Amino acid sequence: KHICAICGDRSSGKHYGVYSCEGCKGFFKRTVRKDLTYTCRDNKDCLIDKRQRNRCQYCRYQKCLAMGMKREAVQEE
């Protein structure tokens, strides 16, 4: 069993190059498709875990990228 590289929830498989849960997969897809931009209200180092993953979209998206999620993979779907 794999866990989500972004928030630690149960992974549903590899999405956009990274083991991730449905929540983070959908979040990344929406962000890329709609070309959304986020801002962090703190120091750009918010904790992203299962409980708090919805608290800061900026940091969640940065963690998706840092863990290796690929924007191109969304476009190719």
Score class of each variant (00 low, 15 high):
residue 6 I to Q: 00
residue 59 C to P: 01
residue 33 R to V: 12
residue 67 M to S: 12
residue 45 D to F: 05
residue 58 Y to P: 02
residue 12 S to Y: 03
residue 3 I to R: 03
residue 37 T to L: 07
residue 39 T to L: 07
residue 58 Y to K: 13
residue 39 T to V: 14
residue 38 Y to N: 05
residue 22 E to M: 04
residue 33 R to G: 10
residue 44 K to M: 09
residue 10 R to N: 09
residue 19 Y to Q: 07
residue 11 S to Y: 05
residue 75 Q to T: 10
residue 6 I to F: 01
residue 30 R to A: 04
residue 20 S to D: 03
residue 75 Q to A: 07
residue 51 R to L: 13
residue 59 C to H: 06
residue 33 R to C: 03
residue 5 A to F: 15
residue 72 E to P: 04
residue 51 R to A: 12
residue 65 L to H: 06
residue 46 C to D: 08
residue 8 G to V: 03
residue 31 T to L: 04
residue 15 H to V: 05
residue 50 K to E: 06
residue 7 C to H: 00
residue 30 R to W: 04
residue 17 G to N: 15
residue 53 R to V: 12
residue 74 V to F: 12
residue 45 D to P: 06
residue 7 C to Q: 00
residue 10 R to V: 03
residue 18 V to W: 03
residue 9 D to P: 01
residue 16 Y to D: 14
residue 31 T to W: 08
residue 28 F to S: 01
residue 22 E to Y: 04
residue 35 D to N: 04
residue 33 R to E: 14
residue 24 C to L: 00
residue 5 A to E: 14
residue 3 I to Q: 03
residue 13 G to F: 05
residue 74 V to T: 11
residue 71 R to A: 13
residue 51 R to W: 08
residue 13 G to R: 09
residue 1 K to Y: 04
residue 59 C to Y: 02
residue 40 C to E: 02
residue 19 Y to I: 05
residue 44 K to D: 15
residue 46 C to S: 03
residue 3 I to C: 13
residue 59 C to V: 00
residue 44 K to T: 15
residue 47 L to T: 12
residue 76 E to L: 12
residue 22 E to C: 08
residue 30 R to D: 10
residue 22 E to Q: 05
residue 54 N to H: 15
residue 16 Y to S: 12
residue 57 Q to L: 10
residue 58 Y to E: 14
residue 14 K to Q: 11
residue 50 K to W: 05
residue 73 A to I: 14
residue 46 C to V: 03
residue 71 R to W: 07
residue 51 R to N: 06
residue 73 A to V: 09
residue 40 C to N: 01
residue 33 R to L: 05
residue 3 I to L: 12
residue 36 L to V: 12
residue 10 R to D: 07
residue 47 L to E: 11
residue 10 R to A: 04
residue 14 K to W: 10
residue 70 K to S: 11
residue 37 T to Y: 06
residue 74 V to C: 12
residue 5 A to L: 14
residue 57 Q to F: 05
residue 48 I to D: 08
residue 28 F to M: 13
residue 13 G to Y: 12
residue 44 K to C: 09
residue 3 I to K: 04
residue 37 T to N: 11
residue 24 C to A: 00
residue 20 S to C: 14
residue 67 M to H: 09
residue 33 R to W: 11
residue 16 Y to A: 12
residue 14 K to I: 05
residue 76 E to H: 10
residue 10 R to S: 07
residue 26 G to Y: 06
residue 68 G to E: 05
residue 43 N to E: 14
residue 16 Y to T: 08
residue 49 D to L: 05
residue 7 C to A: 00
residue 9 D to N: 07
residue 5 A to M: 14
residue 31 T to M: 11
residue 19 Y to L: 08
residue 50 K to Y: 05
residue 48 I to R: 09
residue 59 C to D: 01
residue 74 V to A: 08
residue 39 T to E: 14
residue 70 K to T: 09
residue 51 R to I: 11
residue 72 E to D: 14
residue 7 C to P: 00
residue 12 S to Q: 15
residue 1 K to G: 03
residue 48 I to G: 10
residue 12 S to L: 13
residue 36 L to N: 09
residue 17 G to V: 02
residue 73 A to Q: 08
residue 11 S to P: 15
residue 37 T to K: 15
residue 21 C to E: 01
residue 58 Y to Q: 06
residue 67 M to V: 10
residue 49 D to K: 13
residue 29 K to C: 03
residue 7 C to E: 01
residue 4 C to N: 00
residue 50 K to G: 12
residue 22 E to A: 07
residue 39 T to Q: 08
residue 21 C to D: 02
residue 28 F to C: 01
residue 5 A to D: 12
residue 36 L to H: 12
residue 53 R to H: 12
residue 41 R to W: 10
residue 50 K to S: 05
residue 36 L to W: 09
residue 76 E to R: 08
residue 46 C to T: 03
residue 24 C to W: 00
residue 4 C to W: 00
residue 10 R to T: 09
residue 72 E to R: 09
residue 2 H to N: 11
residue 14 K to R: 05
residue 24 C to V: 00
residue 14 K to F: 12
residue 10 R to G: 06
residue 68 G to M: 03
residue 61 Y to H: 06
residue 40 C to D: 02
residue 17 G to F: 05
residue 66 A to S: 12
residue 53 R to Y: 12
residue 48 I to M: 13
residue 75 Q to V: 12
residue 43 N to V: 12
residue 20 S to K: 02
residue 71 R to K: 14
residue 8 G to S: 08
residue 72 E to W: 14
residue 10 R to P: 12
residue 24 C to E: 01
residue 28 F to I: 02
residue 12 S to R: 15
residue 41 R to I: 14
residue 1 K to H: 03
residue 47 L to N: 05
residue 36 L to Y: 07
residue 33 R to T: 10
residue 53 R to N: 13
residue 17 G to E: 11
residue 38 Y to K: 05
residue 17 G to M: 13
residue 6 I to R: 01
residue 36 L to P: 06
residue 12 S to D: 11
residue 44 K to G: 14
residue 22 E to H: 05
residue 13 G to K: 15
residue 70 K to N: 15
residue 56 C to R: 10
residue 31 T to I: 05
residue 68 G to C: 04
residue 28 F to R: 00
residue 31 T to H: 04
residue 57 Q to G: 13
residue 22 E to N: 06
residue 44 K to Y: 04
residue 13 G to Q: 10
residue 36 L to F: 14
residue 30 R to T: 04
residue 69 M to A: 06
residue 57 Q to E: 08
residue 44 K to V: 08
residue 68 G to F: 05
residue 68 G to H: 05
residue 28 F to D: 01
residue 29 K to G: 13
residue 46 C to Q: 03
residue 68 G to A: 03
residue 24 C to Y: 00
residue 20 S to I: 13
residue 20 S to A: 14
residue 21 C to F: 00
residue 50 K to Q: 14
residue 33 R to S: 06
residue 58 Y to M: 07
residue 77 E to H: 13
residue 40 C to A: 01
residue 8 G to P: 03
residue 66 A to T: 11
residue 2 H to I: 15
residue 75 Q to Y: 05
residue 2 H to R: 05
residue 3 I to S: 04
residue 17 G to T: 13
residue 38 Y to T: 14
residue 46 C to G: 03
residue 8 G to W: 05
residue 45 D to Y: 07
residue 45 D to T: 07
residue 1 K to C: 03
residue 36 L to G: 13
residue 36 L to M: 07
residue 5 A to R: 14
residue 77 E to W: 14
residue 4 C to P: 00
residue 21 C to P: 00
residue 38 Y to C: 02
residue 41 R to A: 14
residue 66 A to N: 11
residue 47 L to G: 12
residue 58 Y to H: 15
residue 50 K to N: 15
residue 40 C to P: 01
residue 76 E to K: 05
residue 11 S to C: 10
residue 63 K to N: 02
residue 19 Y to C: 04
residue 1 K to F: 03
residue 2 H to V: 04
residue 77 E to D: 11
residue 37 T to M: 04
residue 40 C to G: 01
residue 75 Q to L: 09
residue 2 H to S: 12
residue 18 V to M: 04
residue 3 I to M: 06
residue 44 K to P: 09
residue 4 C to A: 00
residue 16 Y to I: 10
residue 70 K to W: 10
residue 19 Y to S: 06
residue 9 D to H: 03
residue 29 K to V: 15
residue 38 Y to H: 13
residue 73 A to G: 10
residue 4 C to I: 01
residue 20 S to V: 13
residue 32 V to D: 12
residue 65 L to V: 13
residue 19 Y to H: 06
residue 41 R to G: 15
residue 29 K to E: 13
residue 73 A to R: 08
residue 26 G to I: 04
residue 69 M to V: 02
residue 65 L to P: 01
residue 20 S to R: 01
residue 7 C to G: 00
residue 43 N to L: 10
residue 70 K to Q: 10
residue 74 V to R: 09
residue 37 T to H: 14
residue 5 A to W: 13
residue 2 H to G: 11
residue 68 G to D: 07
residue 77 E to Y: 13
residue 18 V to C: 06
residue 7 C to M: 01
residue 23 G to K: 04
residue 28 F to P: 00
residue 59 C to R: 00
residue 53 R to S: 06
residue 22 E to F: 05
residue 18 V to A: 04
residue 29 K to F: 08
residue 71 R to S: 11
residue 5 A to S: 13
residue 11 S to L: 04
residue 41 R to K: 13
residue 30 R to F: 02
residue 75 Q to I: 10
residue 70 K to C: 06
residue 41 R to S: 10
residue 3 I to W: 02
residue 7 C to Y: 00
residue 20 S to M: 09
residue 33 R to F: 08
residue 18 V to L: 04
residue 33 R to D: 11
residue 21 C to L: 00
residue 13 G to I: 02
residue 12 S to P: 15
residue 77 E to I: 14
residue 12 S to G: 15
residue 39 T to P: 13
residue 10 R to H: 07
residue 26 G to E: 08
residue 18 V to T: 02
residue 57 Q to K: 05
residue 76 E to N: 13
residue 9 D to Y: 04
residue 43 N to C: 05
residue 71 R to L: 13
residue 7 C to F: 00
residue 37 T to S: 09
residue 48 I to K: 15
residue 36 L to Q: 11
residue 40 C to H: 05
residue 68 G to K: 06
residue 21 C to V: 00
residue 59 C to F: 00
residue 40 C to Q: 01
residue 12 S to I: 03
residue 56 C to F: 03
residue 8 G to Q: 14
residue 4 C to T: 01
residue 16 Y to H: 09
residue 58 Y to D: 14
residue 10 R to F: 06
residue 16 Y to W: 10
residue 22 E to K: 12
residue 14 K to S: 08
residue 69 M to Y: 11
residue 7 C to N: 01
residue 19 Y to V: 06
residue 33 R to K: 14
residue 49 D to F: 05
residue 73 A to K: 06
residue 16 Y to E: 15
residue 72 E to F: 03
residue 15 H to I: 03
residue 51 R to H: 07
residue 24 C to M: 00
residue 26 G to W: 07
residue 53 R to L: 08
residue 20 S to Y: 09
residue 43 N to Y: 08
residue 75 Q to N: 07
residue 10 R to E: 07
residue 9 D to W: 04
residue 6 I to E: 01
residue 8 G to H: 07
residue 20 S to N: 13
residue 76 E to A: 13
residue 39 T to M: 14
residue 43 N to G: 14
residue 50 K to A: 14
residue 26 G to L: 04
residue 10 R to K: 09
residue 24 C to G: 00
residue 32 V to E: 13
residue 23 G to Y: 02
residue 16 Y to R: 07
residue 9 D to V: 02
residue 2 H to M: 15
residue 48 I to W: 12
residue 40 C to S: 01
residue 15 H to Y: 07
residue 51 R to D: 06
residue 47 L to H: 10
residue 49 D to H: 10
residue 70 K to D: 12
residue 3 I to D: 07
residue 69 M to C: 05
residue 41 R to M: 12
residue 21 C to N: 01
residue 6 I to L: 04
residue 75 Q to P: 11
residue 9 D to I: 02
residue 16 Y to N: 05
residue 43 N to S: 12
residue 71 R to F: 12
residue 75 Q to C: 13
